[in-house]
Write a protein that binds this DNA or RNA. Sequence first.
DNA 1: GCATACAAAGTTATCATACCAAAATTTAAA
DNA 2: TTTAAATTTTGGTATGATAACTTTGTATGC
Lengths: 238, 238
Amino acid sequence: MDEIFGKIGTAQTLSQKIERRIEEAIRQKKLLVGTKLPSERELCEMFAVSRTALREALRRLSARGLIQIKKGSGMFVSELRIEDAIESLNLYYDLSFDSDLISQIIEVRRVFEPEIARIAAANRTDEDLTALNKNIADLADCDPDNTQMEADIINKFHLNVAKATGNKVMIISMEPIYSLLPRMRNLIYANVDGEKDFTVKAHRAIYEAIRDKDGEQAYKEMAGQIDRTLEIYTQYLK
Amino acid sequence: MDEIFGKIGTAQTLSQKIERRIEEAIRQKKLLVGTKLPSERELCEMFAVSRTALREALRRLSARGLIQIKKGSGMFVSELRIEDAIESLNLYYDLSFDSDLISQIIEVRRVFEPEIARIAAANRTDEDLTALNKNIADLADCDPDNTQMEADIINKFHLNVAKATGNKVMIISMEPIYSLLPRMRNLIYANVDGEKDFTVKAHRAIYEAIRDKDGEQAYKEMAGQIDRTLEIYTQYLK
DNA sequence: GCATACAAAGTTATCATACCAAAATTTAAA
DNA sequence: TTTAAATTTTGGTATGATAACTTTGTATGC
């Protein structure tokens, strides 16, 4: 009889229920980071479920980065890492990658990044400067034929600018976008001659503006750099 | 340190290997969206593993939104939904929620949102306008004591502005931030008198600027609105 | 006293099997 | 042709056994 009036909207499986329960406990800080969870067998008894169901719940929590499972040792509540948090987003962009997405990414960068550069100029620490300077040097030294490494360095430079704002939300917002730059660059780089010198100069100008705490200049240089990028891609996308 | 001496060999469990294999196939479009995967039993034979190991891999893929599992029917490669992609990020922000995060979020909004409003004014469709208009009406009608609903409506309004840009990346970048607005607003709303009238007027001004395709005005109004928000929170955070 | 080696206990990882429940498919009846 | 029942397919759960790994304590040898 329970079958008749039973679950309608609840297509939830047992393992999903378990997952939610544990997730809620972590969200509400009832389970603090570092806490060791009871062993599988104990949890089975506590929830009154089989190991199969329990394990599938735990595996999903582990996949999402909420807990860490150490074979032979136990399961621990772990601090959700930024990388885990944005991994899904990276995958999403990776799967949606097409010319539309490229245009949209450039539009976003054109609007956001100059502002980011301005804030970075105001807030940058000496460590930020060191990191940026190293990126520039690496870029200059980089073998012009190694477009992969080049794209990687540029990626890091822009990410370091975002870091220099001291604003975690900025970093998180931009990181998934930057992670696509290498893939974008691979599309068009072969077509562009003498681009590298230009790129190095442009990035050095951004660096110097940030170094000198000249927010307006940083804004302008970053905007110019992305305008150039936009031109190149507009040409390519045609 | 962990990086340096961390495990070299395959600390990967069997189920993780399976997960990677299938994920790679999806990433490389060898498995297209909508494809029905072989049944669990068949996959067990193909991979030569037990059902347990296989299932744990499949459950994780399902948790990440890459496949959809239908009981009695089968498993299908599914299009990764935006909501799935940003869920982890929402959780991350939720767990990191503190006064620092609030400040950083407001800083990001102060910089990004006016620009978003400007672009929205240029690209908005009539449907966008209808949605925004409805948000304004709902906000005006909303019971002043129901702060939860109020915050929810405002959240939707800002999200709709982002949607009006026509740029998917904008939406995705801002959504996790907006999803925290209700929680933020709950902190301070009780302390503010006569705030609601102000809020309605401010949002209506933004709406009208977007309606009139007046980018500059939209920029200014949005900036003003967030400046006010900043003031309120600055007061609260002290 | 100290360091190494080893054994034991606890834990997760995997496997194999069985049965249950839901959905789709086939078959039989009206 | 339509409907309803039976069958098949498929995922969901349960259980028990074994393997692999980590930690810890203990014993051994120096």
